[in-house]
Every structure is written in structure tokens, then in C-alpha cells.
């Protein structure tokens, strides 16, 4: 079974380096302050490798890969 992967940002760590937007432009663009805007859709199979690299290359390790499981909306 295919596991769906999407990207998330640890906003407390992200410094708006923008590297991730260069590596994964189909999912990440930058806002007017230079912070990543995620499109929220699952990463396509063919882009998973690049997504892993974007996460590994983020200078502050703020880009996170998330395995998509059933969303749980508990706030805590």
C-alpha cells in the first residue's frame, strides 16, 4: 500500500531561507515575507525523493515530512 507523504513546517524553527521552495516548487512557494506557503496536497510519488532532500537540506530542519494518517483535530 502506498503511503501518502505531505510536507509541514515547524514554524518555530523556520527562518525563511527559502531553500525548500527551490527544491520543491510544485508544493512550496514563498510569501511576501519569504516564508514557505505549502499547497497542502500530498507529495507525488515521483517527487518524494526531492521532498526528503528538501527536509534534510533545510538549514534549521524546519521542513517536516508527514505521513498522512486520519486527521485528528484535537488541539492538545
Amino acid at each position: 500500500m502506498d503511503q501518502q507523504i505531505s510536507v509541514g513546517v515547524d514554524w518555530t524553527a523556520c527562518q525563511g531561507h527559502g531553500l525548500c521552495a527551490e527544491l520543491l516548487p510544485e508544493h512550496i512557494t514563498l510569501d511576501e515575507w519569504g516564508y514557505p506557503l505549502l499547497d497542502g496536497t500530498p507529495v507525488h510519488r515521483t517527487a518524494v525523493k526531492r521532498a526528503r532532500r528538501a527536509a534534510a537540506d533545510c538549514p534549521v530542519l524546519a521542513l517536516k515530512l508527514k505521513l498522512n494518517t486520519v486527521a485528528n483535530t484535537a488541539s492538545s
Partner: peptide, 23 residues
């Protein structure tokens, strides 16, 4: 809730990245 958990763990009372959740 995460700020509270941080504070009670001896760190600054600030929210943290919500994964994994406090629960």
C-alpha cells in the same frame, strides 16, 4: 496546552511544533 507543557517541563512557556501532540 503546549506552552503549558513546556513550562511544566522546565522550559519557556511558549507553544511548540504540535507534532507529536501534547497528549
Amino acid at each position: 496546552s503546549s506552552a503549558l507543557a513546556e513550562h511544566l517541563s522546565g522550559r519557556a512557556a511558549l507553544p511548540r511544533y504540535p507534532q507529536p501532540p501534547v497528549r
